[in-house]
Write a protein that binds this DNA or RNA. Structure first.
Length: 611
DNA sequence: CTAGGGTTAG
C-alpha cells in the first residue's frame, strides 16, 4: 500500500502535487508519512477533473475546499472516518457529514448510509436539505418509496424546504421501481401545477424512466417537449433515447438522432458511440461497428473499457473467442485495462463453446489480473459446468463463492436448478429451489421454469402442473416459455389432447405462441401419428404471423420421416434449402438411417435424385 | 444530493 501511495504522488508533476497538497492544507508530500497515527484509508479528490490524491493512514485536520469529495476503497474506511467525526467536538459541519454520506452512497451501501444518518439524528446533528436528499435517494435505491416519501414529510415538519433535487430523486425512485406513471404524476403535481422549474436532470430522469419501460416513442415526444419549453437537451438526454432505440432494434432511428445531436451542437461522447457500437456488434454488422469505432477515435472520443468489452462480448457470443482474445490484447496495448466484465464475457465465450478448461483458465487468472471474480463470474462458470454436465464442479464453485463472501442470487440458483433438472436429479433441483428462500431470495419466472422443465422432462407432469399453479398463486404471470415446457411435457406422457387444448387456449390467455411453441406442438402431433394436423399447423403458423425457422423445418421433416411420409419429407427438405436453412444433426442422422435401410433407402434415393 | 453505455439463468 505504501508503494501505491508513492506511485500516486509520483505520477503527478511535482509542482502540481505540491499545489494540490497546499490546497488541501496538508503540507508537502513527506509530511504524509509523519502523520500522527494510522487512521483510515481514503482517496480525496478535488473534483472530477483533478487527479486523485491517495492518502493512507492519515486524517484531515482542516476543512478542505468546497468541491472536494471523499472516495474510499473500503467501506470500513468510511466508517472509521464517521466514528472519528463523531468523536470530534464540536462536530464537523453538516456539509462534511454530507460528503461522507455521499461517498458511502457512491459505494452503493445504502443501508449503511441510512444507519449513519439515523445515528447523526440521535446525536442531534442537524440535517440539511443535502443530507435529507441523500436519505431520500437511499430509500429510493432500496425500493422503499414509502420511506422516501416519509422523508419528504419529515422535511416539511423540520421546516426544511424540499428542492428540485428532492423531487427529481423521488421521481427517479418511482422510475427505478417501474412506476413511471406515478413518476409522471408527481412531475405534473410539482412542476406543472405548483409551477416549480424542473431542471434537465428532472427531464432526463423521466426520459430514462419511459425508455426503461419500453416507451421509447413517448420518450422521443418528451425530448421535443423539453425543447419547446426552452430547455436544451444534453448529450445524456440523447444517449438515453439512442440506447433505448438500439435495444428496440430501431438502429436507423438511433442513427438519425445521433446525427441530429451533432447537428445541434450537442457533441456525442463515448457513451453515445458505445450504444451504437453495441447495437452494430450484436446484429453482426461488424463493418458498421468498425466504421463507428474509427469515427469515435477521429472525433477524439477515446474508446474505453466498455467499448472494448462490448466488442469482446459480441465476438464471444458469435463463437469467435480467439478474435476476442486479440481485442483484449489490443485494448491492453492501448493502455486500457480489461475489468471483471471483460473477463466475464471472455469466460462465457469459452463456456458457450463448451471449452470448460479454457474457461477455467480465464477464471483462475482473473485474480492475477488484478480483478476479483464477482457473482457474474461464478454464475457464468457454474452455468458452463452445468451445460457441460459437470455438475459436481458447478456445485463446488457454488460453495466456493459463498466461502468467498459472495451472495448467490436468483440467477445462481436457477442455473443450478436447471443443471440438476437436465441430468434428472430432480430431488436435488427441488431442494435448491427451497434453498433460495433461505437466502431471502424470491424465485422469478425463470427460476420456476428451470424446475418446471425438470419435472416435465422426466415425466412428472402432475407435479409440474401443481408447481405451475403454485407459481401463479405466488403472483407470477406465466409466459410462453412455461407453456412451451408444459405442452412438451404433456406430449411426452401422451396427453396430447390436454396439450392441444392448452395450445389453442394460449391466445385467449393473451400469450402469443412462439416458433418454439409451434415446433413443440408439431412434434407432439407427429408423435401421435397426426401428421396431417401437424402439417396444417406448420402451414398455418406463418399465416398467424409466426415465421418458420430452421427448427420448424427440421421438426416437420423429422415428423414426416417418423410417419414414413418420405415424399412429403423431401418436399419440405427442398423448401427448407431454398429458404436458406439446413438440416440439423438429428435430421441428418435420420436421413442417413433411412438411406442405409433396405426397405425405404432405395425409393428415397430415387426421390432425392429427382430434386 | 438527482439523469446515460458493457457481463449470467428458462
Amino acid at each position: 500500500m505504501m508503494m501505491m501511495r508513492c506511485w500516486k504522488i509520483a505520477s503527478l508533476p511535482s509542482s502540481s502535487a505540491i499545489d494540490l497538497l497546499q490546497r488541501l492544507e496538508l503540507g508537502n508530500p513527506k509530511s504524509l508519512n509523519s502523520l500522527p497515527f494510522p487512521f483510515f484509508n481514503c482517496f480525496y479528490a478535488l473534483n472530477k477533473e483533478s487527479p486523485l490524491f491517495y492518502c493512507q493512514n492519515s486524517y484531515f485536520s482542516t476543512t478542505p475546499s468546497k468541491k472536494s469529495k471523499y472516495v474510499f476503497d473500503k467501506i470500513d474506511d468510511a466508517l472509521a472516518l464517521f466514528n472519528h467525526m463523531l468523536r470530534t467536538h464540536p462536530y464537523h459541519c453538516i456539509v462534511e457529514f454530507g460528503k461522507l454520506l455521499s461517498a458511502i452512497v457512491r459505494m452503493r451501501h445504502y443501508e449503511i448510509a441510512i444507519s449513519l444518518w439515523r445515528q447523526m439524528e440521535l446525536l442531534e446533528i442537524h440535517h440539511n436539505v443535502y443530507t435529507l436528499n441523500i436519505l431520500v435517494n437511499c430509500f429510493c435505491r432500496l425500493h422503499r418509496m414509502d420511506f422516501g416519501f416519509s422523508v419528504l414529510g419529515k422535511m416539511l415538519k423540520l421546516g426544511i424546504e424540499p428542492d428540485v433535487i428532492t423531487f427529481s430523486t423521488l421521481i427517479n425512485g418511482l422510475c427505478i421501481g417501474g412506476n413511471v406513471a406515478q413518476a409522471v404524476r408527481l412531475f405534473d403535481d410539482v412542476f406543472v401545477r405548483e409551477g416549480c422549474q424542473p431542471t434537465l436532470f428532472t427531464y432526463n430522469t423521466i426520459v430514462n424512466g419511459l425508455c426503461k419501460i419500453g416507451e421509447t416513442t413517448r420518450a422521443v415526444r418528451l425530448l421535443r417537449t423539453i425543447e419547446e419549453r426552452g430547455c436544451a437537451p444534453n448529450t445524456i438526454t440523447y444517449n438515453i433515447i439512442i440506447d433505448s432505440l438500439c435495444k428496440d432494434n430501431h438502429v436507423t432511428e438511433a442513427l438519425k438522432l445521433f446525427s441530429e445531436m451533432s447537428g445541434k451542437g450537442i457533441p456525442p461522447d463515448v457513451v453515445s458511440y458505445n450504444c451504437l457500437i453495441h447495437a452494430m456488434c450484436n446484429s453482426c454488422q461488424w463493418k458498421e461497428a468498425t466504421t463507428l469505432f474509427n469515427e469515435m477515435v477521429a472525433a477524439n472520443c477515446k474508446p474505453d473499457v466498455i467499448t472494448y468489452s462490448v466488442v469482446v462480448d459480441a465476438l464471444c457470443k458469435e463463437g469467435r473467442v480467439l478474435e476476442a482474445q486479440d481485442i483484449l490484447e489490443r485494448m491492453i496495448q492501448q493502455g486500457i485495462e480489461p475489468n471483471i466484465v471483460t473477463y466475464n464475457s471472455l469466460m462465457d465465450g469459452y463456456c458457450l463453446r463448451g471449452e470448460m478448461d479454457e474457461a477455467r483458465k480465464v477464471f483462475n487468472s482473473i485474480t492475477n489480473k488484478g480483478c476479483t471474480p464477482d457473482v457474474f463470474s461464478y454464475n457464468i462458470i457454474i452455468n458452463g459446468y452445468c451445460k457441460a454436465k459437470r455438475i459436481d464442479e458447478a456445485v463446488k464453485l457454488f460453495h466456493e463463492m459463498t466461502q468467498n463472501g459472495l451472495i448467490p442470487n436468483v440467477v445462481t440458483f436457477s442455473t443450478l436448478i436447471n443443471g440438476m433438472s437436465q441430468i434428472g436429479r430432480l430431488a436435488v433441483a427441488q431442494e435448491i429451489f427451497k434453498e433460495m428462500y433461505a437466502y431471502g431470495l424470491v424465485p422469478n419466472t425463470i427460476a420456476y421454469s428451470s424446475l418446471l422443465y425438470g419435472l416435465c422432462r422426466h415425466g412428472h407432469i402432475n407435479e409440474a402442473l401443481g408447481f405451475f399453479r403454485a407459481m401463479q398463486s405466488s403472483g407470477l404471470e406465466p409466459n410462453i416459455v412455461h407453456y412451451n415446457i408444459l405442452i412438451d411435457g404433456l406430449c411426452l406422457v401422451g396427453q396430447l389432447k390436454v396439450a392441444r387444448k392448452l395450445f389453442y387456449a394460449l391466445t385467449v390467455k393473451g400469450v402469443h405462441p412462439s416458433v418454439y411453441t409451434y415446433s413443440t406442438m408439431i412434434k407432439g402431433l407427429c408423435k401421435e401419428g397426426l401428421l396431417n394436423e401437424a402439417y396444417e399447423l406448420f402451414r398455418k403458423m406463418e399465416v398467424d404471423g409466426c415465421m418458420r425457422n430452421s427448427c420448424s423445418y427440421n421438426t416437420m421433416i423429422r415428423g414426416c420421416f417418423h410417419n414414413n411420409d418420405i415424399s412429403r419429407a423431401i418436399q419440405i427438405l427442398h423448401e427448407m434449402v431454398q429458404k436458406g436453412f439446413s438440416a440439423d444433426v438429428s435430421t441428418v442422422a435420420m436421413v442417413v438411417d433411412i438411406l442405409s435401410s433396405d426397405s425405404t433407402g432405395e425409393s428415397f434415393r430415387a426421390l432425392v435424385q429427382k430434386l
